[in-house]
């Protein structure tokens, strides 16, 4: 392992160890009952004991989450392109987008279940609503912040609106878009697990992490509850890491955020 990788891994590793030590210290100092805060090792034992169940539940949550996230990417980018087309359109539509974002999803959830019934469609829709706004906000910002001189440069050579969008605005917006995807990715487990929890029990073991949380909560299995939370975190980390990889793939050759060592 080279020194750069070591430098990257060491700080989060150290802070993770400190976090666990604080966890134990809090239990000891404040004499917290395991019912409220189980010891860290109990959570880890529960994580491995329930491993198969947690894994399959996480996969179900991942499928719903990715479906909702995928929809929010398609819809978010499309709406952003529409919003960037004119100031009047932005003034007309953006307030409604903000309104959806500001309304707690717990208010939308019963309406969604009413429309789509208890099932995957409702979970996917709830995930979509949770992850939609950061994508719209960031992508729109990227599309409308194209330098005027760049626009003028293409206009001199007779670029039409489609060419300005496809050759200039959209590629210019990619870094902002990916930032929106990153924020959205962290919200995927939140949206999907909440959706599953709210929609309630699916048949047998086809439920996701939200269903497991529902069951563990009902059975008062606290270490298992924490272990489910850990699984959701790992899912979120995997999603963000995937977006980071896409970020690197698309931007590392040309974007200033990737330092060049060969400047001539």
């Amino acid at each position: 392992m080279n020194s750069i990788s070591k430098n990257r891994m060491l700080p989060p590793l150290i802070s993770g160890i400190v976090f666990v030590l604080v966890w134990y210290a809090a239990i000891w100092i404040f004499k917290i009952s395991p019912f409220f805060l189980p010891p860290f090792h109990d959570v880890i034992f529960a994580f491995f004991r329930e491993g198969e169940r947690l894994f399959s539940a996480t996969m179900v949550t991942a499928v719903y989450g990715l479906s909702g996230f995928g929809l929010s990417i398609v819809a978010g980018v499309s709406i952003s392109i529409l919003l960037s087309s004119s100031l009047s359109v932005r003034k007309a539509i953006y307030p409604w987008v903000l309104l959806i974002q500001m309304t707690p999803v717990v208010i939308f959830a019963p309406i969604i279940v009413l429309w789509f019934d208890y099932g995957p469609a409702s979970v996917i829709t709830i995930t979509f609503i949770t992850t939609f706004f950061p994508i719209v906000a960031n992508t729109t910002h990227g599309l409308i912040s194209t330098e005027p001189n760049m626009i003028d440069c293409l206009k001199v050579y007779q670029a039409n609106r489609f060419q300005l969008m496809s050759l200039l605005r959209i590629p210019h917006a990619v870094p902002d878009m990916i930032n929106g995807f990153k924020i959205g990715a962290t919200l995927v487990p939140i949206g999907a697990v909440f959706g599953e929890f709210f929609v309630g029990s699916f048949a047998g073991n086809r439920g996701g992490l939200g269903l497991l949380v529902f069951i563990y909560n009902k059975e008062t299995r606290i270490p298992e509850l924490f272990a489910a939370g850990l699984s959701a975190c790992l899912l979120g980390i995997l999603m963000v890491a995937s977006i980071q990889f896409i970020n690197w793939l698309l931007l590392h050759k040309w974007h200033d955020s990737f330092a060049t060592h060969n400047r001539h």
């Binding site: 330098e147 003028d152 050759l167 200039l168 590629p171 040309w254």
Partner: peptide, 24 residues
């Protein structure tokens, strides 16, 4: 038109930037 800022598209190589007017 040559602007004060080179107005190069950062995601395109030098050659690809030169090709833009022709592409349009």
């Amino acid at each position: 038109f040559i602007f004060q800022d080179p107005t190069l598209l950062p995601w395109k190589t030098a050659q690809q930037n030169v090709e833009i007017p022709l592409q349009l």
